[in-house]
Design a protein around this nucleic acid. Structure first.
Lengths: 213, 213, 213, 213
DNA sequence: GATGAATGAGATTTCATTCAT
DNA sequence: TATGAATGAAATCTCATTCAT
């Protein structure tokens, strides 16, 4: 019978509606300022119902985080779709990451927020699990890309794919984060820095450092 | 008379005593969990007095942040003290940054916390000002170092010193932050990554990308 | 047909299963901390079903209380089984009461809880009814015992059986409750009281006061 | 100067005002139904202020309990004021206890509530301490009274003063509690019991059992 | 300058109970 | 009869900040 399936579907829909509402609130006022009351109101559910679907405010946050990583992952895959060479894929993925930080800046900020918060992952939050799994998928994706570059001889053969993937990830993250910092502090204004240019320049340098010459 | 001076000195001493207390509390329980009550108690001042010297909890936080940047700046200057070539200084500074994140991890974490928090710098916080100024000093320091490298022909002459400084800063920051993330989430365990190795490897790649060949 | 009977039987079985579950939960965490959710889960019924069989959480509680009184009643009857004289029965029943408070301390505590709670018995709770009826049975039992003692000349003839029964009940209850209090507060430790001794001593005094000399 | 004293006095006044308010609320709706919100409102203080003076709802409750014990203690002392013989004092004190349960039935109920609640005294509640101390004072008072009775030969010399005091306390408590139970359950109505008569009768029996013949 | 009592807005979470299916 | 999703009222407690003294 389709009863179980229908219920499952409905449950998922409600869950998504709640995440939608949570995004609205959290994206506009930040995680801490966001209240479960307001999320419930926006979602048009009672507060109790929210707690029926999510263990915590934190759990709800991780659900958003997961969505963000999924989008990022998709953007990475699209980015390399018609690109042949590994080294070019590296650049394309870097650009996609930057693109993500601009187009989905809300997700981006939410994700960074988590990454900078020590001692949180309180375990047994279903969505935190999910979120970590997705994170690893991205890292594996990067490693595979480097591997491909080594195989097609566009990337230095002496590099370890996994480590290099992580390094490129870290460096890119740092650059993009720099811009985000510049946005809410006042670096850019004072120094008149064009972050976009800077980021692309940094990608060049990164590519430079791994490409096979 | 020296009265004004003495008063000034006393004010500064008290301010420092309060910052000391704030560090104790904030470093041990995190910014949010730290309460003004506890800080006041540790500082052996009344809560009202804290607000006499600091506009805000946030302002107090920025005072700590400033201290951190100052320490970092000093470590950078020491790091290049006996190093001749610009390119070698780049590496030395990268290492000093990593060293800072380990030796002064409390300051490091506190500083990152701020960098990841959007929409905060509420202006007219005296210590926030200070903190930004110090941040710029560091960036200028990096730019000068690159400049030197270009002059002594160890760094590519086609690079812009200011931009390159920022790029190296951003990339290093990303790498070090990666480790911090790994520490409080569970990346490292799952993937068995040796972050120290990774960071040094990334420094190599960065140096590679800017050095004059 | 036996259909009605079977249904009745099944209903009672389910009711008992639910009471069993409620006991497990309530005895281990206390009435207030026990949740209907957990009781339902342990009982392997849905929460709605619990409400099908019991009007209330309170009603469910009274069902447990009833069981307790029934056990107590049985222990009283067993206690006097081979005892001839009324006065000796009095002592035997007192001891049985104390025994009950030790052996079935869960029931004992649950029952006391109710007795100390003012303004509860919300009426039209089926099990509260039952519980009161059982309580009266016990009082009647005590009265009959005193009556017997008067008849066999071991108890003072000037005493009213019903009143005396209630008095002995109340006094014993007080003594046993004293011990329970001592257990969860810190009287006994401070004062070094041996409650068992005290209780038996008090029984002696009670017997003393009613026996025919 | 009297500044410290005045502050101390004011503090105590406020504390008392809060306890007054708490009594109003707790006595009228019971401990559990009483909310800190309402207490604060009645006390005309903000909720935060309540928590400044009392650690807990429980702490506040113990403050009430303490008041009750103090009243009881005073009533005991008044009760024996012009009474010479120990044995007569025993009776007088029993009556005073019963009187207390009627005149200050709110305090009485509140106190019983605590006595029947297992596992509460969470320590480090300032008022819980106080409350236990007062309780012991009462027990010592009873012991002294028995001692006096033994000395003036009105009470059996073979009795231990402390133990006997506790026993009489426990038995009386049981009798009075019986009435309280009868009040909120429906014993008395069904059985047509005159509790007052019963209690006095029980006092007679108790006196009987300890008096020197 | 220094104090610390007072504030009071709010946040998270729990749970008995209901009711549509 | 049985379910369990949904409710929503309430409860406790915290803390940055202010202000009269």
């Amino acid at each position: 019978m389709g009863i179980a399936e229908r219920k499952e579907r409905e449950k998922e829909q409600k869950q998504n509606a709640i995440i939608d509402a949570a995004e609205k609130v959290i994206f506009s006022k930040g995680l801490e300022a966001a209240t479960m009351d307001e999320i419930a109101e926006i979602a048009e559910f009672s507060k109790g119902t929210i707690y029926l679907y999510f263990k915590n405010k934190e759990d709800l946050y991780f659900a958003i985080h997961s969505r963000g990583i999924q989008i990022l992952h998709q953007m990475f895959e699209q980015a390399i779709e018609n690109i042949e060479k590994g080294i070019d894929q590296v650049l394309a993925v870097g650009r996609a990451y930057y693109e993500f930080s601009k187009v989905h800046s809300d997700y981006y900020k939410a994700m960074v927020y988590y990454d900078c918060h020590p001692g949180k992952a309180d375990s047994d939050l279903p969505f935190a699990e999910n979120c970590n799994m997705e994170g690893e998928k991205v890292l594996k994706f990067l490693a595979m890309m480097i591997q491909k570059g080594i195989e097609d001889k566009t990337i230095r053969p002496d590099l370890d794919p996994v480590k290099t993937g992580i390094i490129l990830w870290g460096q890119s993250m740092g650059m993009i984060q720099l811009q985000a910092m510049g946005d809410h502090h006042d670096f850019s204004e004072h120094l008149g820095i064009d972050y976009e240019e800077l980021i692309y320049k940094s990608f060049e340098l990164m590519v430079e450092s791994v490409k096979n010459k």
